[in-house]
Design a protein around this nucleic acid. Structure first.
Lengths: 187, 187
DNA sequence: CGCCATCTGTACCATTCAGTACATTATTGA
DNA sequence: TCAATAATGTACTGAATGGTACAGATGGCG
């Protein structure tokens, strides 16, 4: 029979889109087969654990992307202020300027929070910590750095919720602009 | 047969809890009957439109509560600064200091956003507008009032997401405290 | 008492769900 | 060329889904 897909990794972004749009419960195998173009046979060949393994793989991929493109630069960059600005730019790009929703946030609010609790918590905790570290290196007192970092992570999630609720992506852009002004204020 | 419930309105809070915890898709009739103690017969007697009518009724009830307890005071109170502080206190109480999630936010992120888009958008838009009006009356320039109001509404949602993701309700308390300081800053 | 609208449990329906089984096909490497 | 393995489509399962039908029960009112 026809061989359609080269790599398991190639379909992770597609899976991500389905979970993003429908949530874990709402992402039926029918949706998944339709979006990926793979039949159940292939799907269960790549993911013997079924939907749960698919979701876990997607979470892991997202986690890896943020680790490489956001958290690590925040921790390592020699110029913390530039790292913060880079973070905002990459965040804007990743979430398509507010047109895309955060899968981890969706999972956090859903009933699947329990199932993927560890991965969900780690994603946000590491974001907050990496940002706080950058702010501290930039010269902020530790407590103030922690406070601003938490505020930023939370604002990004809230902006995504509000942008989608109001069907107005510009909300997200304004929130990022606000963070750009405030995170490095007084430095 | 046993008559169990007095009023349709009595079960709306229970329905709200189910939708809050499981989302719209995940709130199966099995969950609903278990939580409310009502059989399908009664449920479909009170809500002939099924799940969709139940969710719409819950949204309407929440909307009414916020209109009466949050938006209207913000618009009407003679002391805008006090009204803002009241809003934060009532918000804290409503969301159980971060232990409870926002049903409207959950719906906004889910695929039901399209079905209840109007109610979802109106909930957030009116919150933002009422708060902006209060801040403007308190002496803030219109543009600054709008900006702070949007930031506040968004921060509340983001704090709920983060609190649940990290399983740490204190995140919500810190966010509200931050808003208390910042909303009325410079007045 | 007895009527009647309101309420409620139960059996049932078609559909969809995630997941399994397996035969069949393609691809690769020897 | 020819196995061995990787990939794939299809048919299927049992359970759960939302929703319907309806026969009763219940309570208030005359």
């Amino acid at each position: 029979m026809a061989r359609t897909v080269a790599e398991r990794a190639d379909i992770l972004p597609l899976l991500g889109e389905v979970f993003r749009e429908h949530g874990y419960e709402g992402a039926s195998l029918a949706h998944i087969t339709a979006r990926t173009g793979l039949g159940k046979g292939s799907l269960y060949h790549f993911f013997p654990g079924g939907k749960e393994e698919m979701a876990a793989a997607v979470l892991k991929e997202i986690d890896g992307w943020f680790e490489a493109n956001v958290y690590a630069p925040l921790r390592a960059d020699e110029d913390p202020a530039a790292a913060v600005r880079d973070m905002l730019a990459r965040t804007d790009a990743y979430f398509r300027s507010g047109r895309r929703v955060c899968l981890v946030g969706v999972f956090a609010l859903g009933e699947v929070r329990d199932r993927f609790g560890e991965q969900v918590a780690s994603y946000f905790a590491r974001w907050r910590e990496a940002l706080a570290a950058a702010l501290a290196r930039a010269g902020l007192p530790s407590a103030e750095a922690d406070d601003r970092a938490e505020e930023a992570v939370l604002a990004i999630q809230g902006a995504l919720v509000l942008a989608r609720a109001l069907n107005d992506p510009a909300v997200f852009g304004r929130a990022l602009a606000r963070l750009g002004r405030r995170l490095l204020d007084g430095l």
